[in-house]
Simulated assay, not measured.
Amino acid sequence: MTINQRKDGGITVLELQGRLDSFSSHDTDRQVTKLIDDGVLKIVLDLSGLEYVSSAGLRVVLSAAKRIRQAQGKMVLACPAPQVKKVLDVAGFSTILPIFATMDEAVKDCRIAAVAHTEHVKAANFKLTAAEEIYLLALDESRGVVRTLPDFTLDYALASALLMELELFDRIDTDLTTLKVTSAVPTGEPLLDETLLELQRKTDPQPTSFWLELLTARKGHIEGQVLAQLIRKGILKQENRRILWVFETHRYPLMDDREVKEVRARLRELILSDDIPDPRDVVLISLGKACRLLDALFTQEENERVRPRISSLARLDLIGDELANSISELERKVAIASMPHSM
C-alpha cells in the first residue's frame, strides 16, 4: 500500500494505492494522523487506486474522519473503484462522509469551509470489553435479570462482541466474504484469547457467519464467562435463590452502577448528535440495535427520530452487519418452525 500526497489549492489530496487491510492499516493511520496533528484539515482521499479495503481499513477511515471533525476540518472520499464502493455502500459510509465520483467534485466540496463547532471530547473509560458492555445494556438492573430477548439473540450478540473486540485489537480482519486471523499474539483478556485460539483451528478463511454459529453452539457458555468477568471486576454481585427446592436462579444486581450509566450515557449522546462515532461505539451500536437494546435509552418520541441514525451507524462495522443478517435468518427459521403444518 502506498500513499502519494499532493496539493490542489489549499486541499491535500492523498492517493491511496494497493490494499488497505490489517497489514497496511497501522502505517496509513499513522500517516493520516500526523497530517491532521500538523494542521492539515482539508483532505480528499483519492480511492481510484485502492484495490481492496477490509474492516481494518474502514476503521482507519472512520478514525481519521472523527479526528478531523474534532479539529473542525473536513475530509471527503473520491473515485472509489467498484469493488471498494461496494464495501463502502454495505458499511453505509456515505451517511457520515461525502463520497464523490470525480476529483473535481470532491475538491470543490472540500473547499467549502467545514462548519465550525465545538465538541466536548470525553476520555471514555474502556475498562470493560465490548461483550461486558453489551451484557450490562441487556441487564434490567432494577430486577437483576437479563431483559426478555429471543433466546438465541444474546448468545449471538456476545459472540459478535468478541469478534469485534478482536478486530479492535488487530487480531482478525474481515471483508464482505471472509474472516481471517492476522495475529496470534494473546490480548491478555482470557475470553478473547480463548476465542482467538478457536479461530485458529481452521487454516482456511471462513465467513463470519460460520464463526458466529460455531461460537454460539454451546448455549449460554459465553454469557456465563462474561458474567463471571463482571463479577470478578466488581461490577456485579451474585445472589442465589432457590425455587421450589429444586431450581436455582441467579439475580445480578449492580454493585457499582457507574459502568452501565457510562455506556448508556455515551451511546445516547452520540446517537442524538451528528458526531462521527469512535470505532468502539460503532461496535456497541451495531450489537445494541441487533438485540433491540437501544430503545430503552430514549423516549418514545426520540426513538422515532433516532431510528434512521441508529441504522446508519450500525452498518459501519461489517461484523455487526453480519450479526443482523444472522439474527434475521434465525428469526425467519423460528417463525417457519412455529407455523402450523397442513395435514
Rank of each mutant, 00 (worst) to 15 (best):
T102L: 09
D38V: 02
V107M: 08
G57K: 01
A64F: 07
C79Q: 15
K85P: 00
D38F: 03
A65P: 05
V44Q: 01
I36K: 02
G49Q: 04
Q83P: 00
V76F: 07
G57Y: 08
D29E: 15
V107P: 07
T102S: 15
L88S: 10
S55E: 13
L50G: 02
Q70Y: 08
D109W: 09
I43H: 01
P82K: 12
D109F: 13
D37T: 13
V84D: 08
R30V: 11
R67L: 09
D109R: 05
A64C: 10
L50N: 02
D29R: 15
L45Q: 03
G57A: 10
V107C: 08
S55R: 12
D109L: 02
F93S: 03
S48G: 05
D29C: 05
R69S: 15
R69L: 12
Y52Q: 11
P98I: 04
V32L: 15
L88Q: 12
S55C: 09
K66F: 00
I96D: 00
G49I: 03
S54F: 03
I43M: 04
D29F: 09
C79W: 01
K74V: 08
S54R: 01
L62T: 06
L97K: 06
P80K: 13
A81H: 06
L97D: 07
K86S: 13
K34Y: 08
A106D: 12
V84C: 07
T28W: 11
K85F: 10
Q31S: 12
L97M: 12
V87G: 03
G39R: 12
V60G: 08
V32F: 02
S55I: 04
Q83W: 00
A91W: 04
A81T: 15
D37P: 00
L97P: 05
S48V: 05
G57T: 03
V61D: 03
K108A: 15
P98H: 06
I68F: 07
L58N: 03
A71C: 04
V90E: 13
T28D: 04
S94F: 06
K74R: 14
V32T: 02
K108V: 10
G73K: 11
A65R: 09
Q83T: 11
L62G: 03
S55D: 12
A81D: 04
G73S: 12
Q72T: 11
K86A: 14
I99T: 14
V44L: 01
D46K: 00
L35Q: 14
Q83Y: 00
A65K: 10
D38P: 00
S54I: 03
V84H: 07
G39I: 13
T102N: 10
A78P: 10
C79I: 13
A78F: 08
L88R: 07
L41I: 14
S54C: 02
A81M: 11
R30F: 13
